[in-house]
């Protein structure tokens, strides 16, 4: 049986719409978000030592957290910030 061009056209439209619907359904699935890590940056007031470690409750910028292992001057928290650390990527703690 030979199909009418109109029927063929409508079938084509139907197929395209189905593909579009299915594609939009699969492509809108979001990847799970990586929770950011909160880091605390500590630095010596003389400026020759700094360290980044994970945030601990009670940390705030300007808090004195010990003595510098290099020169003995006070160590202060200079920043607290969040960063997305990917697995196998950057280390959460670094010294300089």
């Amino acid at each position: 049986m030979q199909l009418d061009p109109l029927i063929l056209g409508l079938l084509a439209v139907f197929v395209v719409l189905m593909i579009y619907t299915l594609l939009s359904f699969f492509t809108t699935r979001k990847q799970p978000a990586i929770p950011p890590k909160i880091l605390t940056k500590i630095a010596c007031i003389s400026g020759n030592y700094s360290e980044v470690r994970e945030f601990r409750e009670g940390d705030y910028v300007g808090k004195e957290v010990g003595k510098c292992p290099k020169c003995g001057a006070p160590l202060l928290i200079v920043a607290v910030y969040s960063e997305i650390v990917r697995q196998g990527g950057k280390e959460a703690s670094a010294r300089s």
Binding site: P36, I38, L39, A79, V80, Y81, S82, E83
Partner: peptide, 9 residues
């Protein structure tokens, strides 16, 4: 409104 990000720092 949220914890400061590294970019903002």
């Amino acid at each position: 409104l949220n914890t400061m990000t590294k970019k903002i720092y």
